[in-house]
Amino acid sequence: MLRDTTSKVVLFGGIAIILLGAIMPNWIVNQLMFGFSRALAILGLLVLWRTGLVSFGHAFYFGLGAYTVAIVDIQLGVTDVFVRLFGGAIIAGIAGFIIGFIMRNYRDIFFAMLNTAISMVLYGIIVKTESLGSTDGFAISLPTIFGIAPETKYPLFIIITMIAMISALLINFYLKTTVGRLTTPIRDNEIRVEYLGFSVAHAIHLKYTISAVLAGGAGALMAMSLGQVDPDSMINWTVSGELVFITILSGPGNVIAPFIGSLVFEVLRTYAFELAPQAWQLIVGATFLTVIFFLPGGIWSLIAKLGRKKS
């Protein structure tokens, strides 16, 4: 499964970034952690998008992952980074599997909006429940790694980068399997796929669950790298919108795209906020529109163009 170029780039690029991380200033390590964490969720949305499905509510799973970390930390005192990560991903995965039974029957805009609706229910419940932190959310204690509390953020950075690498490789592999390849055919004509003997509902259900697991893991990693969760930054509909935006910004071309897209978004937001504290939304929003209009294939299409010229 590591034979193709994409896998090699993921592998060597990841290792190079981990090594570079040792000499990079803290704030860049932070941005990379945020970017890579979020990129996991984008990876999941990419799997869905290839099937023609866009969810405007994946902040539901993102938030579920993040809040799982907060709740196992506060209620049970769990600090281990892996327990927290897999806890978040599994809870989100279970939720995704159950909700998938409803979602797999819907397409297009209805699929997008039902997801929004479900995420709003979770948002509403958390915002209004004092024991779940209400609008303030929770601070999360620093994660430990096999019982050791690291002095710096670097070990967490290594873990996040490795998780990102492994996920990218797995998804790259999945997209090459038969079920994984049932993406564009479903988008183009479901009935034909059914006649070929595949269950479209099952294929979509699987993809939906995968995307939920990835979004949950992303939320869990994000919560740990930030040390804070709150509903407005984790579950609100604007967060879902951002996730979809980064997906479009990245482009569906390759599993590497989400990582580049997330980093670009992270840098864009940081600098927009720094340059125009009162009008940073305008900069982000205008970028949205520009990308939708002038870069429909996302950043990946630029890279693909470069690649074609060279080869």
């Binding site: 170029t5 090699k8 780039v9 690029g13 970034i17 570079l20 590497i256 580049i260 890279i303």
Partner: peptide, 19 residues
């Protein structure tokens, strides 16, 4: 084929530039 390699290079270059 070279797309991915270029992608990796672009990514790394961006990161080192901000470094």
């Amino acid at each position: 084929m070279t797309k991915s390699i270029i992608a990796g290079a672009v990514g790394l270059a961006a990161i080192s530039a901000i470094t």
